[in-house]
Design a binder for these strands. Structure first.
Length: 203
DNA sequence: CTGATGATGTTCT
DNA sequence: GAACATCATCAGA
């Protein structure tokens, strides 16, 4: 079952936590890509100087003003795109960065998208390297800013989040976020969630 | 295995 | 002009 608006229109931290274990589904060119979400980070509000929208919205971040469930994708380091899900009600700002997924379906196509060569005899390392980072799974699942910025996971025919068994509490780890040393206040907030012992969690 | 470095271009000051 | 929610590659151990 596809997640509905009410799932996303909640506190950003709860949305980040509850996205763990759910399946991100993307259908394109007759290929069905499915990745289980194993790592997320919450970006919250004006108190969080790690968030892009902490000093107000800009053209890049305008979609975060929309209702939870919309898609926020942005460019980073000139060559990568990161995938976020908007949380909270309309006009309340919050977003969840998906940092890693575990491939469930479409692995052969993911391999081709990532390595630009024919699928052949992958090692365990090759498989883990498909999706164990925020830019990596976006490339593997063939998601682009041009196609999906501002899209809505609640009713888009091509991309959505599918419900799944909740992850037991004892398997959910909460920690500091990654690579936001520039944030002076938000740096130490415990806003990163991941599934304990899952090999696809980023390093 | 670890840590350091370069790639690359949009966004914001 | 600087910063940047990253990744691939390479050197060293």
């Amino acid at each position: 079952m596809r997640m509905k608006r009410d799932f996303y229109q909640r506190n950003t931290i709860l949305v980040a936590r509850d996205l763990l274990g759910k399946n991100l589904v993307h259908r394109k060119n007759g290929i069905s890509y499915i990745g289980k979400i194993v790592e997320t980070e919450a970006y919250i509000n004006s108190q969080d100087d790690g968030a892009h929208f902490n000093k107000g919205l800009t053209d890049r971040t305008r979609i975060i003003d929309e209702a939870g469930g919309h898609i926020y994708i942005y460019n980073i380091y000139g060559m990568y795109q990161l995938f976020n899900i908007v949380a909270e009600e309309k006009h309340v700002h919050g977003a969840v960065l998906i940092r890693a997924v575990e491939p469930m379906e479409g692995i052969e196509a993911m391999y081709v998208n990532r390595y630009k060569k024919e699928y052949s005899d992958p090692t365990k390392k090759d498989i883990i390297n498909l999706t164990n980072g925020p830019a990596k799974f976006v490339m593997a699942m063939d998601i682009s800013k041009e196609e999906y910025y501002g899209g809505d996971l609640v009713d888009d025919k091509r991309i959505w989040v599918e419900d799944a068994e909740p992850i037991p509490k004892e398997y959910i780890v909460r920690s500091k976020r990654i690579n936001i040393d520039y944030a002076t206040k938000g740096k130490d907030y415990l806003l990163r969630f991941y599934i304990k012992d899952n090999p696809f969690v980023s390093k």
